[in-house]
Design a protein around this nucleic acid. Sequence first.
DNA 1: AGGAAATTGTTATTTTTTTAACAAAGGATG
DNA 2: CATCCTTTGTTAAAAAAATAACAATTTCCT
Lengths: 206, 206
Amino acid sequence: MKHLPDKTVERLSQYRRSLSNILNTGKTHIFSHEIANLLHITPVQVRRDIMLIGYTGTLRKGYDIADLVALIGRIIDSDPGQRIAIVGMGNLGKAIIHYLHEIRSRLQIVAAFDINPDKIGKTYTSVLCYPMEQMEEVIAREEIRIGIITTPPEVAAAVASELIHAGIRGILNYTPKPLNVPDDVYLEEYDMITSMEKVAYFAKEG
Amino acid sequence: MKHLPDKTVERLSQYRRSLSNILNTGKTHIFSHEIANLLHITPVQVRRDIMLIGYTGTLRKGYDIADLVALIGRIIDSDPGQRIAIVGMGNLGKAIIHYLHEIRSRLQIVAAFDINPDKIGKTYTSVLCYPMEQMEEVIAREEIRIGIITTPPEVAAAVASELIHAGIRGILNYTPKPLNVPDDVYLEEYDMITSMEKVAYFAKEG
DNA sequence: AGGAAATTGTTATTTTTTTAACAAAGGATG
DNA sequence: CATCCTTTGTTAAAAAAATAACAATTTCCT
Ligand SMILES: NC(=O)c1ccc[n+]([C@@H]2O[C@H](COP(=O)([O-])OP(=O)(O)OC[C@H]3O[C@@H](n4cnc5c(N)ncnc54)[C@H](O)[C@@H]3O)[C@@H](O)[C@H]2O)c1
Ligand SMILES: NC(=O)c1ccc[n+]([C@@H]2O[C@H](COP(=O)([O-])OP(=O)(O)OC[C@H]3O[C@@H](n4cnc5c(N)ncnc54)[C@H](O)[C@@H]3O)[C@@H](O)[C@H]2O)c1
């Protein structure tokens, strides 16, 4: 499969989550306009996204929910599910670990790292916190491919370098400091302040 | 000023934050390519964004940092700064309040709401937590225009209705449940799982 | 002074994303 | 059995965003 558009991947992730919930209700098929209603987008967009991943529903019956969920799973995460490390076990880091554990996704945080001796060796929602010195070894051993950064912004760039050096392939940066990474490492950044200021601006305008 | 593109508003927010930091160093002017380097984007994009807000730099000297920061401020937030309420004082809610306080932005969280009696009446990083019943009154009194939702997903829709009923103009939803709001309320949603799955997908592909 | 280099502001082009349009399939209805 | 309705898959058009191109101006250098 060629590479999917950015936005399509985002929506696929959302489709899967909504559809997974519906599966439990016993419903087996769903129409594009029903999916669209769940996410408040248009049916065309849904059909187009589904077309891009090569799935095809049945006319007048819609899409087989279980099949679609399974296919999106195979596309988004590799088969056993992705293994993740998180660096910086402060407020945000702990909240994220807790959240991910509770939501039971196929994404799994399998290691935490920090420099604070009070945190090292502790377990947070069943994830053990290691010292930074063991990063390379742990990431290799646990086959971790993705890193989340929730340290103070001043050290974000250094942490990113260490992660990359340890062999990570993708980084999710929650620090407000924009990072610079090599082309073969995928970087996603999110800053809450930007979101809030965006709301502030557009709420003002109408 | 006509309405700015979505993405431009996001970048303006980032420009302001980076430039504010630089102001403290005594530097007074900056070139488009310097700004671009800070955020790892292209100089053209910077110039274009700045053009859109009607600011103009001086040739061969670049942009006056203080002026630009002030102008972006006038554009993004109304003059005294925006007042925000947050609903749901769990892990994420507390982390956000703490973060916003520490970063000292012009955005100000001035009220928190929860249903848990243990949390009501408490103060989190100097923000008082009110019971849900007082929402309408507090939002009016404090002139709050923006609401952040960090409750469990099951109650997100109900909370959004209450916020809107109380007169809020913009909502930032951190719950994984997509919301439906009237046209005159601006809605921004963010789900960490989607970000992580996006990284998972693109880290795999290369 | 005159030419070269740097840097902005703006228009043009390309790429990406969304939205619309519509033919084809299949079932439902009478 | 013929017709009508619904829903998919796909192509076409439109809108939004990013990138490139480049003229105009200022400073710098000789
Ligand atoms: N709290 C939020 O809601 C929030 C929101 C958006 C962004 N952020 C950003 O996320 C980051 C973390 O926020 P927080 O509130 O959790 O901060 P925090 O201070 O509570 O946590 C930071 C953690 O990083 C650890 N750390 C410090 N230096 C380190 C290093 N060199 N290597 C490894 N670990 C190190 C600290 O020991 C601490 O545990 C900050 O950059 C903040 O700006 C936070
Ligand atoms: N923790 C994270 O990092 C994280 C990340 C992404 C999304 N989320 C989402 O953010 C939300 C909050 O996460 P959390 O970890 O802070 O959960 P949490 O359970 O710690 O906090 C939820 C809070 O909401 C309050 N609440 C419950 N019902 C309410 C109601 N009807 N009105 C007002 N308040 C109510 C609870 O008393 C509690 O204080 C969840 O929807 C979660 O899925 C969390």
